[in-house]
């Protein structure tokens, strides 16, 4: 057997990024730190460089991706992913959302294949804004969080259109922090 392989810096970053995402979904509402990255490793001029790091950890030619930011879209294309629309994409990376209407377009999978539901990545301000109460798998009882930067009616729309186990996952990024909300999490606007 060859010598023990060493992870490249890229491999280490992707692994740590995934680790943050995995725990973010496992413990909804608890922000996780994404690993630091070398600015040279990611495209310049991105408003949300963390989104590029998520692409590195998750996305390749087996994915269909919708990126709002053109520079991020080029980064995703380099992974081999096919560009998609909000209706066709399995992963969506947005710079923001003015209304919750887009949620209605997202893939939710089917009862037979819930895994076909989309993953939506959005920037938000964690720890600010309106209080929300989370419950469901991964939450020890209930958890109150504050999230700002999302459009009015976002949570109501999410609750209205998802019929578990169909649904979509949401990652909210704030700089190098990420918070996960799987479809299994109930979000109550306080």
């Amino acid at each position: 057997m060859p010598a023990v392989p060493q992870p490249s810096a890229f491999e280490s970053r992707c692994n740590a990024t995934y680790d943050a995402l995995m725990w973010a979904l496992s413990r909804p509402g608890l922000p996780r730190d994404l690993p630091p990255f070398d600015p040279d490793d990611l495209p310049a001029g991105l408003a949300h460089p963390a989104h590029a790091a998520l692409i590195d950890a998750l996305i390749d030619r087996e994915c269909t991706v919708h990126c709002e930011n053109p520079e991020l879209a080029r980064h995703a294309a380099r992974s081999g992913a096919a560009p998609g629309t909000p209706r066709t994409a399995d992963h969506l990376f947005l710079d923001g959302l003015a209304t919750p209407d887009l949620l209605g377009d997202l893939r939710q999978g089917s009862d037979l294949h819930p895994e076909d539901g989309a993953t939506l990545v959005l920037p938000a301000r964690l720890g600010q804004g309106a209080p929300l109460r989370l419950s469901g798998p991964g939450v020890d009882g209930t958890l109150d969080v504050r999230l700002a930067g999302l459009p009015e009616g976002f949570w109501q729309t999410r609750a209205r259109i998802m019929r578990y186990p169909m649904g979509f996952e949401v990652f909210l990024t704030d700089g190098a922090r990420v918070l996960g909300l799987p479809r299994s999490t109930r979000v109550e606007v306080l």
Binding site: P2, C14, M22, I59, D60, E115, P165, E169
Partner: peptide, 26 residues
Amino acid sequence: PMAYGFLDGSAKREIRRKMLKAISVP
């Protein structure tokens, strides 16, 4: 000679994506 952790990047990314969905629909 061998990818770190034996699996190549594409295998790992697929497993990561599936694990995220598995966690989301326990």
